[in-house]
Amino acid sequence: MRTEQETTSAAVAEVSRHTLSVLVENKSGVLARVADLFARRGYNILSLAVAPTADDRFSRITIVVIAEQAVLSQIVKQLFKLINVVKIAELSPGNSVERELMLATVRATEQTRPEIMDIVGDYTAVVLAEGDNQITISVGGATAEIDQLEEALRVHGLVEIQRTGQIALPKIGAEVPILRASK
């Protein structure tokens, strides 16, 4: 006999990061419905990115959540109850390509600038703007890489930072688990 609570506590260690790719109808209010659902049911979103797809009837929302399996399963089922949600797939590093974009403005003095440029080079980031004591860089990459870059820049002083949250697509030819889809 298992109750959800016990499953939850037994599996605390298994809390992990999941990337959901949610295909929704391109109708007004859909994002609000999705955001509302997460807030109302107390699910944790790490990031959420939304954009139109090649088919203009649909948009794709990429949601990264931290959840243990039973909660993830509830999230997926509750999401799929939204009338405008058409399909939910789970993307993982193995079956998908993942990217995130970061813009960051960093303090850069005469002395620290070379060191910062080294870091920028290591991460194949691009300098977008330079001022007297600051530079703005842009970098695209896997979320984990960007986390590292953010840490490396932090020691020099981050003035402003904006990250897009992760987006992802299935790898060409890869089988992606479809968690829910309308027949």
């Binding site: 109750t3 959800e4 399963s73 089922k77 109850k81």
Partner: peptide, 26 residues
């Protein structure tokens, strides 16, 4: 109290809403 509910029972759960499966009891 959910953890004391029907402690020896296996459960067959018929519901038209799949989100009810495992919401409280697996």
């Amino acid at each position: 109290r959910v953890k004391d509910f029907a402690p020896d029972a296996k459960v067959i759960h018929v519901d038209i809403d799949p989100a009810e499966h495992g919401k409280v009891r697996v």
